[in-house]
Computed example of a mutant assay.
Amino acid sequence: MTGRVGYLAGAAAEDSVARDYERRGYGVVARRWRGSGGEIDIVLRDRDDFVFVEVKKSRSFARAAERLSAAQLGRICRTATEFLAGIPGGMGAGMRFDLAMVDGAGRMQTVENITL
């Protein structure tokens, strides 16, 4: 997907993921938060901790997972640190990184606390 269709499909996937987390009791703090080094799709709050979610939409979960590189995860980590530095007490908060994948049929699969 490219252009406007890809943008809209990505936004719809992010909406679905955000609603899923909200149903599970997380609070959405920011969507598409942009720092100096990159963007975080969804920032969530879980009590005193923050969850930074990268959303990948593709035909299959396997293809979606393949689209997250170590370099991209590094940018997300640096951007998350920048986000936390901008809020009171943020640097002392716990954090984790999740990968939320949405396939071509709209099904969702989440991998919590990802590392590469």
Rank of each mutant, 00 (worst) to 15 (best):
F52K: 06
R23S: 03
E14C: 09
T115I: 01
T110P: 06
A64W: 08
A62M: 02
F61H: 05
R78P: 01
D48I: 04
R4T: 07
E66F: 02
R24I: 00
R24V: 00
S16D: 11
I40D: 00
R75G: 02
E112A: 13
T2A: 10
V28P: 03
V51L: 10
G3I: 01
G10E: 09
E22C: 03
R67D: 03
S60M: 07
L99K: 11
A62S: 15
R96E: 15
E39G: 08
R34N: 05
A62T: 11
G25T: 12
G6C: 03
G86D: 08
A100N: 04
Q72S: 01
D41R: 03
R78E: 06
Y26E: 06
V17N: 07
R24K: 13
E66A: 10
L44P: 06
D15C: 04
A85Q: 13
N113P: 04
R31N: 04
A100C: 12
G6D: 00
A64K: 05
I87L: 11
G37P: 04
R4I: 11
T115F: 10
L73D: 00
A100S: 15
R31Q: 14
V51R: 14
K57Q: 11
L73R: 12
D103W: 11
Q72Y: 01
A65R: 14
F50I: 01
I87K: 00
G89Y: 13
F50C: 07
D49L: 07
I42G: 00
G89T: 12
M95H: 13
G74D: 10
K57N: 05
V43R: 07
D20A: 08
M95A: 15
A30V: 00
A64S: 01
V43C: 08
A70D: 11
S69Y: 00
E82N: 09
P88Y: 13
D20G: 04
I76M: 12
L84S: 06
E22L: 09
D20Y: 08
G90V: 07
L99Q: 00
S16L: 15
T81E: 15
D49C: 01
G3C: 05
L116D: 04
R24Q: 14
A62C: 00
G89L: 08
G27D: 15
A65P: 02
F50P: 03
R67G: 09
E82S: 12
I114A: 08
D98T: 01
L73C: 08
D20S: 13
A100Q: 06
A105T: 14
S58F: 08
R96I: 01
L8C: 00
R23P: 03
D103P: 10
G37T: 12
K56N: 04
A93D: 03
V111P: 00
E54Q: 12
I42V: 15
R96L: 10
T2N: 12
V55T: 08
E112T: 09
V17Q: 03
D46A: 14
A85G: 14
G86I: 06
A71Q: 09
G38K: 03
R78K: 08
T110F: 00
F52Q: 09
F83G: 03
F97E: 02
R24D: 13
V102F: 04
D48M: 09
R47H: 06
A70C: 10
G74E: 11
G94C: 13
E22W: 02
L8D: 11
R32Q: 14
M108P: 05
G106A: 07
D41A: 02
G106Y: 02
G35R: 03
D98Y: 06
D41T: 09
A9V: 10
E82K: 07
G25E: 04
V5S: 10
D15M: 02
R24N: 12
